[in-house]
């Protein structure tokens, strides 16, 4: 059981890092600094439901450190970390409430990822005016969060089938 878990951690962490890379390859019309697809969140939402909050937390941590060191440098790492922690925190909270579906959880995660990043950005630049972008980031968080929730939901169906077949 334990070795299976270790393997799962590895697979999920690798996928999350990979998603970070894929995201770099997709050119996005940059309306707002900090706007992102948040593809890695697909993996984290799946991890949150397939495993548990603790596992998702560690996978997120591994992803942020690896992605940060590989693609972004130290400042980028800081933003990612803030975004990831905010996002995972709210997702863990909402997941425990049965009144929210996976899509709702994912939307909250996307939105709070952006909020976390903007808070760090405001602290680093020491300028609250950066919150000017908040409305756009909120809306983009809702849209990407929704799409990611849908993808995660479909993926989990297949994962469940895979688990049952053993």
């Amino acid at each position: 059981m334990r070795s299976k878990q270790i393997a799962l951690y590895g697979v999920f962490a690798a996928l999350a890092v990979l998603m970070g890379y894929v995201e770099l390859l997709i050119p996005l019309p940059l309306l707002v600094p900090g706007m992102k697809l948040g593809l890695a969140n697909v993996i984290l939402v799946i991890a949150l439901y397939y495993m548990d909050a603790k596992s998702a937390f560690f996978i997120s941590l591994i992803r942020v450190v690896l992605c940060g060191l590989l693609f972004q440098g130290f400042a980028g790492l800081l933003y990612s970390l803030a975004g990831a922690l905010c996002s995972l925190g709210i997702m863990t909270l909402l997941q425990k409430m049965p009144k929210f579906s996976m899509i709702g959880v994912s939307i909250a995660g996307g939105v709070f990822h952006n909020i976390g990043q903007i808070i760090v950005a405001a602290l680093v630049v020491e300028n609250i005016k950066i919150a000017f972008y908040l409305p756009l980031l909120l809306v983009s968080g809702v849209v990407t969060g929704f799409l990611i929730g849908v993808v995660a939901q479909y993926s989990l169906r297949y994962l469940a089938r895979f688990q049952n077949s053993k």
């Binding site: 009144k99 929210f100 709702g104 939307i107 909250a108 939105v111 909120l138 968080g141 809702v142 929704f146």
Partner: peptide, 11 residues
Amino acid sequence: KRFDILLVAAI
């Protein structure tokens, strides 16, 4: 679910 929609509306 209904709460999801409420959440989106609030945001």
